[in-house]
Lab assay of single mutants.
Amino acid sequence: MGSVRTNRYSIVSSEEDGMKLATMAVANGFGNGKSKVHTRQQCRSRFVKKDGHCNVQFINVGEKGQRYLADIFTTCVDIRWRWMLVIFCLAFVLSWLFFGCVFWLIALLHGDLDTDYKDDDDKSKVSKACVSEVNSFTAAFLFSIETQTTIGYGFRCVTDECPIAVFMVVFQSIVGCIIDAFIIGAVMAKMAKPKKRNETLVFSHNAVIAMRDGKLCLMWRVGNLRKSHLVEAHVRAQLLKSRITSEGEYIPLDQIDINVGFDSGIDRIFLVSPITIVHEIDEDSPLYDLSKQDIDNADFEIVVILEGMVEATAMTTQCRSSYLANEILWGHRYEPVLFEEKHYYKVDYSRFHKTYEVPNTPLCSARDLAEKKYILSNANSFCYENEVALTSKEEEEDSENGVPESTSTDSPPGIDLHNQASVPLEPRPLRRESEIGSRR
């Protein structure tokens, strides 16, 4: 089982795998120059863009038009607004034209077009017409509009002379109601789609790998820009990579689940303020055997998904993003964004995407760390350097704002901070800030 798991979770494809794949392509008759073999020097295209759209195009789909027309309502909801407006206008105009032609044909076959009612006051002739005051196609078209929109100006009306005319008036009224219901329903469904809710759900630009509770963890940050909550919010993550099976089958995008606390339930989050999602790199993680150097040379993509129900409509929305291997910062942490004021908490989104480097973060893999092949620094050293990194950030910001350097908390000259780390230190809580992250 261990060997199978290692093969499945191998992220960085070796040169031997690339040569094996190329040999397979030639042997199977696919070596026509169009096949692409992804190596370390040639990274694959992003499968999920940063804005959440999937970078996929469908080609050679059989009976595409028929399949889309069979699900016309979903098609109308998914198309762009400009095409929705075109369909909206065409549906009414074509129905008016169709029934206008029908009423014109009825008048033509009944002989109503030969009668001039402007110079004739004989009401008996008017009563013999199928539709009064309809003696041309324009008049028939206007009567069709008046019937379907129930305008009723009063000059044109159907008589009991022709039952077919009466039937067409009733039929057009029913068709008009159906068109109204369909168009209004599609427009309302399109307006109520929770897709735009994703514009106020954000992911951090970069993911980070750092120590948390004595273990290497992959972390990324999510935030909600609205005050309205995302009900039943939960997160998922998958690692996408290519691999070759033991039988020699090439899988271009193998999807591997990344555990973010599904078993323990901590994948469900209360997204009021930005939260750091934590994936513990343990023996079940696809990143277990990867060191910093392996991450730098790897070719994979981590897709992160945030799902929840919109509070206003109770409709489920899904926000997506992805991180390539070069977008994962090893040995970094996110800057705090949640600050405790006197009577409330304040979230500073200008710090949302910012990170700071944490010294002495192990550069080895989580496996080597678990097997004690890498000796961690003293816990006080880690905490102290973590505090120094934050303090230096604040000093830089104070210097930019014009604060005198004498007010900063610099260490005395001639003292090495790293050498001082081995000395037991008193706890130094942050002056006014605390970061709330997901705790395992």
Rank of each mutant, 00 (worst) to 15 (best):
G2C: 03
V4Y: 05
R5N: 11
N7D: 14
R8T: 07
Y9M: 14
I11A: 12
S14W: 03
G18K: 04
L21I: 07
A22P: 08
T23E: 14
M24T: 12
A27S: 10
G29P: 08
G31W: 05
S35D: 15
S35G: 08
K36Q: 14
V37E: 15
T39E: 13
Q42D: 15
Q42W: 05
S45I: 03
R46K: 01
V48F: 10
G52E: 01
N55K: 11
N55A: 10
N55P: 09
Q57H: 08
F58I: 09
F58P: 12
I59V: 09
N60V: 05
G65M: 15
L69H: 13
A70F: 05
T74C: 12
C76N: 12
C76M: 08
R80W: 03
L85F: 07
L85I: 13
L85E: 02
C89G: 06
C89A: 06
C89W: 05
A91C: 05
A91Q: 13
L94N: 01
W96H: 02
W96C: 12
L97I: 05
F98R: 00
F99N: 00
G100P: 00
G100S: 04
G100N: 00
G100Q: 01
C101N: 06
V102S: 14
L105H: 02
I106K: 01
L108E: 14
L108K: 12
L108W: 13
L108I: 07
L109T: 15
H110F: 01
L113V: 08
D116W: 13
D116K: 09
D116Q: 15
D116R: 10
D119T: 01
D121I: 12
S124N: 11
K128Y: 08
N135K: 08
S136I: 02
T138K: 02
T138R: 02
L142I: 02
F143K: 01
S144E: 01
E146G: 06
T149C: 05
T150W: 04
I151L: 09
G154V: 02
T159N: 04
D160R: 02
A165T: 02
F167Q: 02
V169A: 04
V169R: 02
V170F: 06
V170K: 01
V175Y: 15
V175D: 02
C177H: 15
C177S: 12
I178P: 00
I179H: 11
I179V: 11
I183C: 14
I183Y: 10
I184N: 04
I184H: 06
K190N: 07
L201P: 04
F203D: 00
S204Q: 00
A210D: 12
R212K: 15
G214F: 07
K215V: 14
L225V: 13
L230G: 10
V231C: 12
V231W: 13
A233K: 07
A237D: 03
L240N: 04
S242H: 12
R243L: 05
Y250T: 15
L253N: 12
D254E: 12
I256K: 07
D257G: 08
I258Q: 01
N259C: 09
N259M: 11
D263K: 08
G265K: 10
G265S: 11
D267T: 07
F270A: 10
L271V: 09
L271M: 12
L271W: 12
V272F: 12
S273P: 07
P274V: 06
V278G: 01
H279F: 00
E280K: 12
S285R: 00
L287K: 01
Q293E: 13
I295W: 07
I295H: 10
D296N: 08
N297K: 04
E301M: 01
E301C: 03
I302E: 01
V303E: 02
E311L: 05
E311I: 06
T317N: 08
Q318C: 11
Q318Y: 09
Q318R: 05
Q318E: 07
C319D: 10
S321H: 14
Y323E: 00
L324W: 07
N326C: 11
I328M: 01
L329F: 04
W330V: 00
Y334Q: 00
Y334N: 01
E335P: 01
P336W: 05
P336R: 08
V337R: 00
E340G: 05
E340N: 10
E341H: 08
Y344K: 15
K346R: 08
V347H: 04
D348Q: 01
D348S: 00
D348M: 01
D348P: 02
S350G: 11
R351A: 15
V358S: 08
V358Y: 07
P359L: 08
T361A: 11
L363V: 11
C364A: 03
S365L: 00
A366I: 02
A366N: 01
R367H: 11
K373C: 13
Y374N: 10
I375H: 13
I375M: 09
L376C: 13
A379P: 10
A379Y: 06
N380M: 06
C383G: 14
E385H: 03
N386D: 13
L390P: 06
S392F: 05
E394T: 10
E395L: 07
E396R: 08
V403H: 13
V403I: 13
S408Q: 13
S411F: 07
S411N: 12
P412R: 10
S422K: 07
S422D: 11
V423K: 10
V423G: 15
E426S: 14
E426Q: 07
R428D: 15
R432Q: 15
E433S: 07
S434D: 15
